[in-house]
Write a protein that binds this DNA or RNA. Structure first.
Lengths: 129, 129, 129, 129
DNA sequence: GTGGTCTAGACCACG
DNA sequence: GTGGTCTAGACCACA
């Protein structure tokens, strides 16, 4: 499967971050494994209908997070990851808050609590470890 | 309790949206009920250390979402809510995606699946209906 | 019929103008005729759930337009009207523009052109001369 | 034609809403079509002699109505519209009421019923579908 | 005293 | 160069 992701222009979430998010998914779930090469920036850019700088920014984000290694000329490669660095407590809180906000917005939009739990388990399913 | 919320000015999430998020919490959880008056924009603004326009923007957001009624001269009042307006499917997807993103970022940061489930239930707890 | 009108707090249109608009209706359509007395400011105010100053402001608006005569102690009375003063062309344009805007917003909201015409005729019906 | 609209700064109707109204016109009548780009907020602002925030507010209004897509770095683009979102009955009433008000104010200002009908048909003409 | 509008302008984030 | 956010503060309209 040649890495099919899709993003939502028109969302308030910037394109480069959506791309990084979608790619991080494939990394977390193990669909992209250490040693695998990511598609060239320009190819993924045309696939998604964005400027290649936007994709490059996403790759840079993931590289900073320690997922990728970028080398001029040889593209982006998934890195062998050890234990994820223990997140700063401030960072932890932010992530938990994002979850909380997502849940409350769904509640506010009328989702039943059960469906939200189902969505959560869909998201958790397939994530190793 | 005079409505104590707090925001993080250093966060990438804009202040006005944080304010709206925190207020939406108190609305979803029923701590603010139909008929209740919100603090004047200028007061909440000084409490939070932001400009009153920033709070006004948050109030306006919640008003267009149907939570509040804003009236010149009177103030901001929580509205009696009927059925939540049927969200466009696009909007629904965005909400579910936000949940998925939050979960996967937590996984990527090394949270055990179980702890994430606990966080979820904390978020769901106390939301009526 | 003891003059039953209703307004929509929560609308962006200020209450006093809604009251004036509703009253002007009854004047244009002839349900209130020269010599008729309007309800006391305080009574109409409590009926509508607004401050009596708000109703007073509406009465004043209609008095300025030449519909009413206000006398302290004797309340508001509908005036014998001659020919309406020829509106300034600027005023004429504003009124026509309001009609145009109303129509376009209905179109934008998906109303069929025919239904809009029906609404128009409902509005015109019963207006004498 | 580079989108020529004009507003009346002396009107009680706020400038940002006038701008939104005028733009909605060009959208409803099909003079601006899906995919078309709107002028940058700052450019339209200087054209109209207002601050760019005022134009931005108008754009945001149309964006939440589903007409536009705003993207940082790109610009404002007219969106492909599906079915107009089913307006809340409350909203429907408000629109019909605005029409009714406009008509009765014209009657009150002395317009003959026939001329009003003519104005209506001018407003309806050119609106497709 | 309440919210609403607007300006002026700085600074940021995105593409 | 695009839109987004925020501040500072004036002035208005409303109740």
């Amino acid at each position: 499967m040649p890495l099919t992701i899709s993003i939502d222009l028109g969302s308030p979430v910037p394109a480069y971050r959506q791309i990084a998010d979608r790619l991080r998914e494939t990394l977390v779930t193990g669909h992209l494994r250490p040693g695998d090469a990511l598609p060239p920036v320009r190819q993924l850019a045309t696939d998604l209908g964005v400027h290649f700088n936007t994709v490059a920014e996403a790759y840079r984000t993931l590289a900073t997070e320690g997922w990728l290694m970028l080398r001029r000329g040889s593209g982006a490669v998934v890195v062998e990851r050890g234990v994820p660095p223990p997140a700063a407590p401030e960072q932890r809180d932010r992530l938990a808050l994002a979850l909380r906000d997502a849940v409350l917005k769904m509640r506010a939009a009328g989702w039943p609590a059960e469906e939200i739990a189902i969505e959560l388990h869909k998201a958790l399913k397939g994530t190793p470890s």
